[in-house]
Every structure is written in structure tokens, then in C-alpha cells.
Design a protein around this nucleic acid. Structure first.
Lengths: 219, 219
DNA sequence: GCCGTCTTGTGAAAATCTTCACAAATCAGG
DNA sequence: CCTGATTTGTGAAGATTTTCACAAGACGGC
């Protein structure tokens, strides 16, 4: 079934992912249906928000009853594009790259890291669970051979822009970027940044704010 | 309620972190001042947004000239709470925990992982660069001894809620959570989730959307 | 000093996102 | 069938965030 796709905000999509995760945590034998209120609790939002989010894509619930767990899971997978396998090319075989390669939840959702490249000649040639680490020069060929449309950048900031461009030139349209740098790519390419330092700084700000009761900066 | 710090949105704070990163990438010998337009380019937002964000905390710029790079860096560090050291307790010594422990940018910003715990007895006792991995039972003591207010959860979803509660009971007020589960904690605790699957799914959705719009190319 | 060119800081307007509130639909029980 | 207890889907209202637009300030050249 093809889903009609209106303009949907990024925050809605991110919540859909949380709904899916929450639904997968339910025992659909014991709990075959779920209300927007319950789903909201599980996902950390409000019932109205859940209904609004879902209603953008269709009427999946039944009044008086709620949403059937298994069908809703399928709808969400369909909306998010998870009803297929996504081959992924990983750039960078350092600590972060290694952790991502082993990350079990990617494969579970259809994201399969099918190729790994690294700049370091000492790493090239090693095998990770059957996948041979290759040289960055092989990147364009690899992307094309694997028909990868998704790439992950887990390399230093200095190399990220060039690597991103290489990925895009070879056909990648979506990038998960762990490098602490703003990538400048064509507007048809989607980039999601994972900025670990930023996350810690947001915590730091929140804690500082909380403890500064009664004293602040001069205005 | 804090007297001087206004209510500031999370998105503003996140952008401040990006501004700081962008400023650190500038050579302040060659470029002693920066305009809101330039900073916006570097951080991937608009000039008006930059000015609005900064103006919530003070008047840091000079009309006709822009912002002085070094002083603005200091203002941002001050706002974000980076003018101090933040001891951090890491829960989970698996792949992700290991990558985070080695992550160089944390220490650079004052976030120092001073203790590591793991549930696995086989890992307890090992040393990571001078830090001994300890049992989860030691967690409360460790948090208190280190005076850690920040914790990182890099453990399976099943263990995350209990570990989070242990952290909070021992005095932690901010948590960076890599476990794919919604934590339920007191409202005085700040939790930032890093949801890698969600990030990939957002890419998947975007790509699926783009291809389903037919042959038209994005501008 | 005066002029022209920049650039900030900021109210107001526009856009976006979230919550509210309620009609319509569903079910269980008698 | 009818009643009462639920719960969805959704316009409207409310809240928040972003963009606009411009007065006021700053600097260099002369």
C-alpha cells in the first residue's frame, strides 16, 4: 500500500520512530491494541500529539478501541521506509566506526553495513565479521557495487567534507555524520548530524541553569 | 526559578554549541571578528537566527563590525557552562562505551570520564588508560566520590532504567542515554537521548519520500 | 567633521508546532 | 435497541520559533 506523503515535519518523523520502538516493546498477545494515551506515555509525549502525528498518514485507529499493535507497527515501518533492506557504506574504521558496525539494532531495522573503508593503510585488509576494510580510494566503486544510498561518516572533521563529497558523487543520498563539522552538500542530500559534544553541552547548560537559582549574569 | 537567565529553548542552546564549534574552527589571527552572516553560514542557519540567539544572553557584537571571535567564544563557553570541569560516570564498557571513553572531544570541553562500570564480571578489573572498570554495585559510591553530576548510559535497554535510577539516587542530574528505551525519571533530571536507529530511520524516510515524488529533482 | 557602507539588536509579522475540546464512532451489557 | 464508558480524528486556539525589516551605532576615507 502506498502511503500518501504530505509535508511532514522532522519532529513528527522522529516521534514515529519512537512510537515504533514503543510498539515493539509491547507484548501484542497480552495487549493487542493500544490507546494514544498509552502510546504517548511509552514514547514520552502527549496523547493528542500521537493522534495528530498518526493522522497525517491515515486513520489507523478505531474509535473507542485504540490502535491495533501489529498493524500499526507495519504502517509505521511502511511510512519510515523500513519495509526494505538499506545497504550502508561506513567510512571510518576507528572506535566509533567499529561500535556502529557491531551495533545490533541497525541490522534489525534493515540497515546493513555492507562495506567499510578507512584511510589508514594499517587497517585496510583487516576483516570485520566477513567485511573487509578497504582503502578510501575504493569508495566510489564500493558505493556503486553495493547500490548504497546511505553512508555513515565516522572520521575526523578534517576529512569529512571530502569523504562526504565522494559518497555523494558515487550515489549516496543520505548521510549520518559523526564528524564534528558542518557538511556543505547539494540540497538533494540529507544529512543527519550526531554531535556528541553538543549533547553533553546541552546537559551542562541545563545543570548550570538549574543550580544558578538567584544568581545570574549581570544585565 | 533563575532570576537572570531567561527561558531559553533547547534549539537555541543547541545552536549555541554549533556557534562555538564554528568559532573554534576560525583562525582568529586572520579573522578577528565574524559577522552574524558568516557565523550562520558556518553553523548552517540564518544570520537573523544567530543574532536572535546571541541577543538572549547579551549584546556581544559591535554594529558595523560584527562579533570578536575570542570574546564570543568565552561568552558561549560561559553560557554553556564549560568554564569548569565536569566529571562523568560511564555505565557500560561495551563497544559504544569504549568509543565514548576514547572520544577526544569530551575531555577537550571539560567532560572527563572519571569512572567506568560494567555488569560483566569478565570486564571488571580491566584498566582503560588508567581508569579501572568497576562493578555496577560500586556505582553509588563512585558517583559520590567523584562528585559526578553527569552520567552516560551505554548499556542494553533492559538494564537502562535501573542503572539510571541508581545514578540519580547517587546524585547524578544529567544523563546522556544511548540505550534504546524511554527513561522515566524525576523531572529534575535532564536526559538527552542518542537514538542511532532513529537517525537512520529519519534518513530512510527522507530518501523514500524523495524517490516517491517521481522523477523531479530537488533544487 | 561628514558621508557612505556595514552590521547589530529587536519589535513585529509570519510560520510552525502543540494542545484543546468535542463530534462521531465503537464496544459491552442488559 | 438503548445506555454509558471509551477513544479516535480534527478544526480551532494557543504557544513557540523563525524570519523580516529597519533604526541606531561603528568604522574608514577624505
Amino acid at each position: 500500500m502506498s502511503t500518501d506523503l504530505p509535508a511532514v515535519s522532522d519532529s513528527t518523523i522522529r516521534r514515529l520512530s519512537l512510537y515504533l520502538r514503543a510498539l515493539e516493546g509491547l507484548d501484542d498477545q497480552a495487549e493487542p491494541t493500544v490507546s494514544s494515551r498509552r502510546l504517548a506515555e511509552l514514547a514520552g509525549t502527549s496523547a493528542a500529539q500521537v493522534r495528530k502525528d498518526l493522522s497525517r498518514f491515515g486513520s489507523f485507529g478505531k474509535r473507542g478501541l485504540g490502535y491495533s499493535v501489529a498493524p500499526l507497527q507495519n504502517h509505521l515501518r511502511d511510512i519510515l521506509g523500513l519495509q526494505r533492506r538499506w545497504p550502508v557504506v561506513l567510512v571510518g574504521a576507528g572506535r566509533i566506526g567499529s561500535a556502529l558496525f557491531e551495533y545490533p539494532y541497525f541490522r534489525e531495522r534493515g540497515f546493513e553495513i555492507v562495506a567499510v573503508v578507512d584511510r589508514d593503510p594499517a587497517k585496510v585488509g583487516r576483516r570485520w565479521n566477513g567485511v573487509k576494510i578497504q582503502s578510501v580510494e575504493a569508495l566510489p566503486t564500493l558505493v556503486r557495487e553495493c547500490r548504497a544510498e546511505l553512508g555513515i561518516l565516522a572520521i575526523p572533521a578534517t576529512d569529512a567534507q571530502a569523504a562526504a563529497e565522494a559518497l555523494v558523487d558515487a550515489g549516496v543520498r543520505g548521510i549520518l555524520n559523526f564528524a564534528p563539522v558542518q557538511l556543505h552538500l547539494g540540497s538533494h542530500v540529507v544529512v543527519n548530524d550526531v554531535n556528541l559534544t553538543l549533547e553533553m553541552e546541552a546537559l551542562s547548560f541545563a545543570l548550570r541553569t538549574a543550580s544558578e537559582l538567584g544568581s545570574g549574569e549581570g544585565g
